[in-house]
Amino acid sequence: TGQSYENMVTEIMSMGYEREQVIAALRASFNNPDRAVEYLLMGIP
């Protein structure tokens, strides 16, 4: 849902990432938050 997506974005942003980076990582990871954080740390393949 939209609210849980926003919660994911906010939670990952709280780790120090910009909203645009978080959204790009979530898009690349098909909204998998664990993989999105991994992409933010290691780069999107």
Rank of each mutant, 00 (worst) to 15 (best):
T1W: 06
T1G: 12
T1C: 11
T1V: 11
T1L: 10
G2H: 07
G2W: 06
G2N: 15
Q3K: 15
Q3T: 14
Q3D: 14
S4D: 13
S4K: 12
S4P: 06
S4N: 09
S4F: 12
S4Q: 07
Y5R: 06
Y5D: 14
Y5T: 09
Y5E: 11
E6T: 05
E6F: 13
E6V: 04
E6C: 05
N7E: 11
N7I: 12
N7A: 12
N7D: 11
N7M: 10
N7L: 08
N7C: 07
M8Y: 09
M8Q: 10
T10P: 05
T10W: 06
T10V: 10
T10Y: 05
T10E: 11
T10C: 10
T10M: 10
T10L: 10
T10Q: 12
T10A: 09
E11M: 05
E11L: 03
E11G: 02
E11A: 06
E11D: 12
I12G: 01
I12S: 00
I12D: 00
I12A: 01
I12Q: 00
I12V: 02
I12W: 02
I12H: 01
I12K: 00
M13N: 02
M13L: 05
M13E: 10
M13Q: 04
S14V: 02
M15I: 15
M15D: 02
M15T: 09
Y17P: 01
Y17H: 05
Y17F: 06
E18N: 12
E18Y: 04
E18K: 08
E18S: 11
E18M: 08
R19A: 04
R19I: 03
E20T: 08
E20S: 10
E20Q: 10
E20D: 13
E20N: 13
Q21I: 09
Q21W: 03
Q21A: 12
Q21K: 14
Q21G: 06
Q21T: 10
Q21S: 10
Q21Y: 03
Q21F: 03
V22M: 00
V22I: 05
I23W: 03
I23T: 12
I23D: 12
I23A: 13
I23N: 06
I23K: 12
A24I: 07
A24V: 06
A24G: 11
A24H: 10
A25K: 02
A25M: 03
A25R: 00
A25L: 00
A25T: 01
A25F: 00
L26Q: 00
L26R: 01
L26F: 03
R27K: 15
R27A: 13
R27Q: 13
R27V: 08
R27L: 07
R27G: 11
A28P: 02
A28C: 03
A28Y: 07
A28L: 09
A28V: 09
A28Q: 10
A28I: 14
A28M: 09
S29A: 10
S29Q: 04
F30M: 15
F30H: 15
F30C: 13
F30V: 14
F30R: 15
N31D: 09
N31Q: 06
N31L: 06
N31A: 04
N31P: 02
N31H: 06
N32A: 08
N32W: 00
P33S: 06
P33M: 10
P33T: 04
P33A: 12
P33W: 05
D34F: 05
D34W: 03
D34R: 14
D34Y: 03
D34C: 08
D34L: 08
R35H: 06
R35D: 06
R35E: 14
A36H: 02
A36D: 00
A36G: 01
A36S: 03
A36V: 01
A36C: 04
A36T: 04
V37L: 14
V37A: 08
V37H: 07
V37S: 07
E38F: 05
E38V: 04
E38A: 07
E38I: 11
Y39G: 07
Y39T: 09
L40M: 04
L40R: 01
L40E: 03
L40W: 00
L41F: 08
M42W: 05
M42G: 14
M42I: 05
G43D: 11
G43Q: 12
G43K: 13
G43Y: 05
I44R: 15
I44H: 13
I44D: 15
I44G: 15
P45G: 06
P45L: 15
P45E: 13
